[in-house]
Design a protein around this nucleic acid. Structure first.
Lengths: 392, 392
DNA sequence: CACCTTTGTTCGACCCCCAAACTAAGTATT
DNA sequence: AATACTTAGTTTGGGGGTCGAACAAAGGTG
């Protein structure tokens, strides 16, 4: 890693931009104090950003005995990105401004069991329609990039190496879509976008080391170390669901074919199976949750068992990573009241030292839009880190 | 993170120094090609290093059609550090030059069950004697720092927060010793020094993401992510031994009091216990290894079981971190021939995707001096990263 | 109304790297 | 043996970044 004046300039630019973004509204003098750069340097950098239009001056901040300062803010409406989530039989999308605010949401269903090429043809038509509509409705908010979340392993150059959800292997998504739309395209594993979104917009802004646990149909993990996503050297990091948690030969069989996977203990399907084993009744996860809400003791028990398994898994993760926080999201946070108590207990019982007291367990509110800030952060983050060169 | 000219200067200095170190012998022109800096800049930086004495010119490299180049090398004998390992009842020490070469080894036994203060009094006397002897014998090789490895959790400011091996809590080691010896003192968990040593001197030089597994009396893990040790936000990362690997209520009890810990399955003691359960004979680990060597089927079986458990643990780790390599060290590598086959098999069976084929499993040769390059790298690495300011 | 405080700008100085020209010291060719 | 060519390392001038100090702007305070 080497550097010169340009390197320094870009680094300081990025620091100032990040500071304005995380502070939301801040003066040049305050920027100088927060970053350690001199007031003159901050002035020069901010002038550049004002010229670019990436920030705006927004009124004055009342004086504390001297000249009042000028509030600087990210110009959220300077640009937008398109965030998408690829699922089997369904594509979700949203246009989002630089502040992460949703402009318009879109949705498109797709026939199941399509080839990747047929799927992508429909995908491209969908995206084209959104972009056209956006450019008509908001001609002053240029669309700068596309962020896509997908279940599976995605290489750093945007090849979907394998996706069990979509049933694809080795699809050069990024290259194809980038050529098609002439826009920067960023693709990531969906759980990783969760972590990226938390780092950029969510509670992860406070932490440099944290874990994002996604619970629901599968069990996923996004890892942030030293402020950066830990993707792994083959982009396969964070495979928690198929970690073997039982060495017993008769442990439950997982969908992946192996035995003893965490998903065979704590996923939606596993919860349903344990309920079936207790009662002989087959219930979907929503019905099961309703039963637990209604006071069904068997349903409550299987959810609390799920909490215990997850708690042990979290304790193992905390023993390994010693993070500042563990953020729990995913669809099944709507059952948090039925599993968090046991999760927390098992976590505390199985964590070494007294880390359990120091690590924050954060449960996100159940939301259908959680994924949006992930894919938006993916594209916006990339744009911001390139912005130093914008308009040159 | 901000920067100015000084920052750039120091960064480039460090890049050049690291390149010379890892290349062992390299010309200015080659440095320019490897780092991306211009020849002129490399010349200036090398001149500074030559003046400092941290590198030397060592002959010419034969011409390939032009002016022959001058070999630059780290001046290993420019300085030395003292590396120490604190154990119960025993202190091991070695003076080491900048190239990691052992100058002299020392050893000192200490009465067991001492208070931390009594232990440290003897420790200080031992260190004083070594430094005095070193300064007499090698007056031209100044001692620049002390690196210490210890079992337990060590904070970033050098407080031994807790050590089950020594039975101490909250001992401000670094502060006390630094005041006592007027030298920079660096203290780390012993498994972390293993990882640091591998990164600095060993096969870890080739990798930016790898895991160091230490097997023996306990099971330890050192983690390197993005070229840096992952210590954790409370310096508790890498606790693998007490990860729960079995959820069964009757799983073996661990020394820590809990059930189902990995150490209760795969440590020396666990291997001995399983042998006792099979045969009714109590054997120490060395005797057990000798029995396995001699063909005792029961002994061979318990070692191969140990391999299976470790293999599953390694697969879980690889699923999480997706590293480039897993380096296996520790005393029990002397039994590698009896457990690696099963370790490898269990690893391959339980790793998701086809990562098992892409991740290198490296087994270190059994050695009594393995710890030395760890603690040496701890002190030398810190010295090198400060060297840009040396003599100013 | 004079003085103080704080913000933001301007300008000269410093210094780091780079590019290009230059010197040094070999090999290859004729 | 002379010349051309190649590669290594040095010297020099220029560009461009941040810094520090001085200055202008705009409010409060007594």
């Amino acid at each position: 890693m080497i550097g010169d004046n340009t390197f320094v300039k870009e680094m300081n630019y990025k620091t100032v931009l990040d500071t304005i973004r995380t502070q939301r509204s801040v003066s040049r003098a305050e920027l100088s104090r927060l970053t350690g750069l001199t007031r003159s340097t901050c002035s020069v950098i901010c002038d550049r950003m004002l010229t670019q239009g990436i920030i705006i001056e927004n009124g004055t901040i009342e004086s504390t005995g001297g000249r009042p300062s000028i509030a600087l803010q990210i110009n959220n409406r300077a640009a937008s990105v398109l965030g998408l989530k690829m699922m089997e039989g369904h594509i979700a999308a949203a246009t989002v401004d630089l502040g992460g605010n949703i402009i318009i949401k879109h949705s498109q269903s797709i026939e199941p069991d399509l080839s990747s090429d047929a799927y992508l043809k429909r995908f491209e038509a969908f995206v084209t329609a959104i972009i056209t509509q956006h450019n008509t409705a908001f001609p002053l908010i240029p669309m700068l990039g596309i962020g896509i979340g997908v279940g599976g392993r995605v290489s750093s150059d945007g090849v979907l190496l394998e996706s069990s959800v979509l049933g694809w292997r080795n699809v050069a998504l990024k290259q194809r879509l980038q050529e098609r739309f002439a826009l920067p395209v960023h693709i990531e594993n969906d759980v990783n976008t969760f972590a990226i979104g938390e780092k950029f917009f969510g509670s992860g802004q406070l932490f440099d080391n944290f874990l994002c646990l996604s619970v629901g149909e599968g069990i996923g993990l996004g890892i942030v170390v030293n402020g950066k996503l830990l993707a792994g050297s083959h982009h396969g990091a964070g495979e928690l669901g198929h970690t073997r948690v039982s060495y017993e030969p008769d442990s439950p069989r997982c969908a992946c074919g192996k035995r003893g996977c965490l998903e065979a203990f704590a996923s939606d399907a596993a919860v349903g199976q344990r309920y079936f084993a207790r009662t002989g009744k087959k219930l979907g996860i929503d019905a099961l949750l309703a039963a637990a809400e209604a006071g069904d003791e068997d349903a409550r028990t299987v959810f609390s068992q799920m909490g215990t398994y997850l708690g042990i898994a979290v304790s193992s993760l905390v023993n390994l990573f010693d993070p500042e926080a563990v953020i729990i999201g995913g669809e099944r946070t709507n059952a948090a009241s039925h599993f968090m108590k046991d999760l927390r207990r098992a976590f505390e019982e199985n964590t070494v030292y007294d880390l359990a007291r120091e690590v924050q367990l954060i449960v996100l509110e159940p939301s259908n839009d959680e994924w949006i800030r992930g894919v938006a952060a993916l594209a916006i983050g990339e744009f911001f880190s390139q912005a130093k060169r914008w308009g040159q």
